[in-house]
Design a protein around this nucleic acid. Structure first.
Lengths: 170, 170
DNA sequence: CCGCTGTAGTTGATACATCCACTATAACCA
DNA sequence: TGGTTATAGTGGATGTATCAACTACAGCGG
């Protein structure tokens, strides 16, 4: 099962050229970046979740509430909400259902389209995100934004854009 | 609830200076980078999971199998495995339990330490990661590594390191 | 040898993400 | 107008993270 005695492990890559399958290893730098990147993103989002949890909101709750807060009328159609966040319909549906049960948002049948729902920010939801925002944004700055130099931030923006463009739609 | 009429939304940040709480917004660039970054990482890992799913492995399965493959004897103590991956004990425990039920790994009581288990790669596990590796590594290259310029990869490595160092231990 | 503290791992509860199959309405077009 | 297709959303099943409370063993100091 060894692919090479000097460069083991399945983080290493194969690359399909034509109908030949040729190994194309990750070199040590690429391997390190990939592993560190996966670790970093996971730890970062886990931390954000933990720091948010005193407020009774999950990061997912926060994201939805923040998106609704960004709207002039504090409401959005369910699918628009999902589309805006890059969430698939089932994910946003389940999430909103849970949030509705906790009274963070309300669902109203859309008058124009009998299939749709308007999701609106409730008083409770508004209060919750108001309470959570200071600590959340502090965390994002402290452990991410402010850790990076302006140059790093700029490159990260470009790089993120490049990856997002390459990623297929669904 | 508006923090400002020109710069709304709870992605914006507050910063605690002494016992004063002062708003410190994310400017438009920072906001874009943060949102795009969260979106990118999520979509990327979702894609990796989907592309892996034909092989019957989740990304988490893959990570564990890859880590075990990297060991000369194809085995590791449960906690070492978790430590290596940056996973907390409950997470690695649950994951390994599920993987054991599918015969991807085996658990043996550690002879030296009656509290510990040695997790070993089974024949099935070995076959599974062998089958999955080509497509997996191809995906990682195609949608991440090869999308980035060497310069971007280098900056990403530095930036990732900086964030990881800042992140608190647990 | 006893008790204390730390470490290894489990378990059950809850929340989250995904998949797939499903209902219902809308839009289109022949 | 009636049939087809696309869109909006639901619901259940499975796998995945996290938390807190738990058992059990190890190592240490008296």
């Amino acid at each position: 099962m060894d692919m090479s005695t000097t460069n083991r492990g399945y983080i290493n890559l194969f690359c399909h050229t034509g109908n030949m399958v040729q190994p194309r290893w990750l070199d040590d730098d690429e391997k390190r970046v990939w592993k560190d990147f996966t670790l970093m993103q996971f730890q970062l989002f886990a931390l954000i979740g933990r720091e948010l949890s005193d407020t009774g909101l999950s990061f997912q709750d926060y994201i939805v509430l923040a998106e609704l807060s960004d709207r002039p009328d504090y409401q959005a159609r369910l699918t628009d909400l999902g589309r805006q966040l890059g969430w698939e319909k089932s994910r946003i549906s389940h999430q909103v259902t849970r949030m509705e049960q906790r009274n963070l948002v309300a669902k109203v049948k859309c008058p124009n389209d009998q299939r749709s729902y308007l999701i609106t920010l409730t008083k409770t939801g508004r209060t919750a995100i108001q309470a959570a925002a200071p600590q959340h944004v502090d965390t994002v700055r402290r452990y991410f934004i402010d850790v990076l130099t302006p140059k790093q931030l700029q490159v990260l923006g470009q790089l993120t854009g490049a990856v997002l463009e390459t990623l297929p739609d669904p």
